[in-house]
Design a protein around this nucleic acid. Structure first.
Length: 296
DNA sequence: AATGGTCAAGTCAGC
DNA sequence: GCTGACTTGACCATT
């Protein structure tokens, strides 16, 4: 079991998701931004490794505008060495990597232009992981997409589009339940038709479900991951006490997390903490997991 | 140096 | 019809 956090480290003082405005786009600006982002990513990974944080979500902003028509810069060639070195570090440290394209990537959109742009953006994500030489246990997690007033039809559209994806994307793509549109059961249905692994989001499941037993869903979603996909990933968060239902907590709720660890037992999972204070909560979660080992 | 409007992109609930 | 939320704020013109 690895425990990690997404994208940003608030302790180090650098950011791996620097970007700039499209209006100020230039190759020089892009190249210097990418160089800075990769340099910071390496610092974060080393900081994590030193603290046994062995799961990390790499920001989608590592290469700004990578899939935008304005970007003709051959970043994968220009940063070949930097990407490969980062990948070497990741492998030697035993770190697990995920990425999570943002809300604009919608494979089941009825608008073919949206689908096309989404595929380009997924190809970029795959190229980052390929450039690092990561195996297929590194994943790209995506939600099903929009409902458009017809959930069944929208699931069918996701399945059809999945069949069109480049294998370089397909071997890394996993589908995740969201908090208001498609449940883990919907994702399992998609798995039946495509074979895509299901990344179970515990908090989203609490927000939207069909009354399924939590342990059962953890087991069923875990079964969709084959050996080449690695240990199943799960996303974990808890409700922010003041925000709307579905709002992520600022800080780990230790009681809730311990309860989750107990429910998880005896399944092995890599846990991504989607909590605002990032590495601070990850360090606490790792200490809690140590005190409450999975195998007795 | 601090601040507030704005930023490539989609969908949808809530007002 | 507009705004905010989403896995994650950061950029930049202006004061």
């Amino acid at each position: 079991m690895r425990i990690g956090y997404p994208c940003i480290n608030r302790s180090i003082g650098c950011s791996a998701n620097r970007t700039f405005r499209l209006a100020s786009y230039s190759e020089e600006r892009l190249a210097s931004t990418i160089a800075g982002n990769i340099a910071c990513l390496k610092k974060i990974l080393a900081w994590n490794r030193d603290r046994d944080i062995l799961f990390f979500r790499i920001t989608s902003d590592l290469v700004p505008f990578a899939s935008h028509p304005a970007c003709t810069f051959p970043w994968q060639d220009r940063f070949r060495n930097e990407l490969a070195e980062t990948g070497d570090f990741i492998r030697h440290a035993g770190i697990r990597i995920s990425m999570h394209p943002d809300q604009f990537i919608v494979l089941n959109s009825p608008d073919e232009a949206v689908v096309s742009r989404s595929m380009d953006e997924l190809a970029y994500h795959a190229r980052v992981q390929d450039g690092m030489g990561l195996d297929t246990t590194a994943k790209i997690q995506l939600h099903v997409g929009g409902v458009y007033g017809d959930a069944a039809g929208s699931i069918a559209r996701f399945v059809r589009t999945y069949g069109r994806l480049d294998p370089a994307i397909r071997r890394r793509l996993v589908v995740e339940n969201d908090d208001r549109r498609f449940t883990a059961a919907d994702c399992l249905e998609i798995h039946e038709q495509t074979g895509i692994p299901v990344l179970f989001d515990v908090f989203h499941h609490a927000c939207k479900n069909n009354g399924e037993d939590l342990r059962t869903m953890i087991r069923l979603t875990g079964n969709t991951w084959e050996s080449g996909d690695g240990i199943p990933m799960v996303d974990y968060s808890s409700q922010h006490p003041e925000k709307r239902a579905g709002g992520h907590a600022d800080h780990i709720d230790t009681g809730d997390f311990l309860n989750f660890l107990e429910i998880l037992r005896p399944c092995d999972r890599d846990i991504m903490l989607e909590i605002k204070d990032k590495e601070a909560s990850a360090l606490i979660a790792i200490a809690l997991a140590r005190e409450n080992p999975r195998s007795r």
